[in-house]
């Protein structure tokens, strides 16, 4: 029927068949990383892109989810996929405790505090907090996930597991975005005082957005732990947060296709330029500056929501 639906169907069909058409485990592995970062990007997008809250410590919630899943699965032999909601809840509760007192801070202040929280979490993990996290070596021997007695261990199996979760993620955030919740967050991003003055409980929505983003990052952490079977604090440092942040900003803050494109470019593209691997961050940095100057809404900016019956836009207005 319309062009977008056609493009989406073609892309879906292509990626659904990808492991069958190209049984190259390396490229399937790259796509697995892209899916994972797309999930992380979409979770941060809810906080940064929609609500305009500067969270530069998203890796902290990712880490809390990954470690919760890793600790519970290695110590109590709980199947790791059962831990998805548990790890999400742990990350969400942590975010709730952290964000409640700081969420009212503005722009740069919030940025610096979230960086601080991210660092505190990483340092805590490195110092083997509560004797649970294994210090800088991390946790290993995380059991492989199982679905209907099938043990997930090969890249193509993870491809469908993580890809499937990405589809759920897209659906979830798309529905939220199109609801009064999504609108409320956008009002807050545009003008918080006006939003509050129009009857929106800004404090509650900011907190809710933050916690939902964190819950989703925590679930992504579970998938990461299951995929790697080893996790260590090094995977959750500041640069991880910056990478997720850059995916959102460069792809298009507030735009689901934008964030997915961002994940493709920032995670996938460097695989083509392995000789320049060291310069990867250099390009990201330059791209962020240039993007803000020339196209500050990102590569694929969000489209306006459509409402049934609203008169068609006809040119400008004086």
């Amino acid at each position: 029927m319309n062009k977008n639906a056609f493009i989406i169907s073609v892309l879906l069909a292509f990626f659904a068949c990808f492991p069958v058409l190209f049984s190259n485990p390396y490229w399937i592995g790259v796509l697995n990383d892209i899916w994972l970062y797309a999930i992380l990007g979409l979770s941060l997008n809810w906080i940064v892109g929609h609500t305009g809250l500067f969270n530069l410590g998203h890796a902290a919630y990712y880490a809390v989810g990954a470690y919760t899943a890793a600790i519970l699965s290695t110590r109590y032999n709980i199947p790791i996929l059962w831990l998805l909601p548990v790890a999400g809840a742990a990350a969400g509760l942590f975010a709730l405790a952290v964000a409640r007192p700081i969420i009212h801070l503005r722009g740069d202040y919030l940025a610096i505090v979230t960086i601080g929280v991210g660092e505190i979490v990483r340092i805590a993990l490195e110092n083997d907090i509560f004797g649970l996290t294994g210090g800088s070596n991390g946790i290993f021997g995380i059991p492989r996930p199982e679905i209907f007695d099938m043990r997930i261990r090969r890249p193509w199996q993870f491809y469908y597991l993580i890809g499937g979760f990405l589809l759920i993620t897209i659906w979830f955030f798309y529905r939220l975005e199109q609801s009064r919740f999504g609108r409320a967050l956008n009002y807050i991003k545009e003008d918080e005082t006006a939003a509050e003055g129009s009857g929106i409980n800004t404090a509650w929505y900011k907190l809710a957005a933050f916690v939902i983003g964190a819950v989703w990052a925590g679930m992504a952490g579970t998938l990461f732990a299951a995929k790697m079977t080893i996790i260590s604090p090094g995977s959750f440092n500041f640069w991880e947060s910056v990478l997720i942040f850059a995916i959102v900003i460069l792809g298009g803050a507030g735009s689901i296709p934008g964030v997915i494109l961002g994940a493709f470019l920032l995670v996938g593209l460097p695989e083509f330029f392995r000789n320049f691997a060291d310069a990867r961050m250099l390009f990201f940095g330059a791209a962020m500056v240039l993007m803000m100057i020339f196209r500050n809404k990102g590569l694929l900016p969000p489209l306006a929501r459509k409402y049934a019956g609203v008169p068609r836009v006809k040119g400008g207005d004086a």
Binding site: F54, D108, V242, D278, M288
Partner: peptide, 22 residues
């Protein structure tokens, strides 16, 4: 918007840090 300026500052920081590394 202020958000753009902050992102640009972050980008400049990442760029310079990696330039020094290279």
């Amino acid at each position: 918007p202020r958000l753009s300026a902050i992102v640009s500052a972050l980008g400049a920081s990442i760029f310079l840090q990696n330039a020094i590394m290279l």
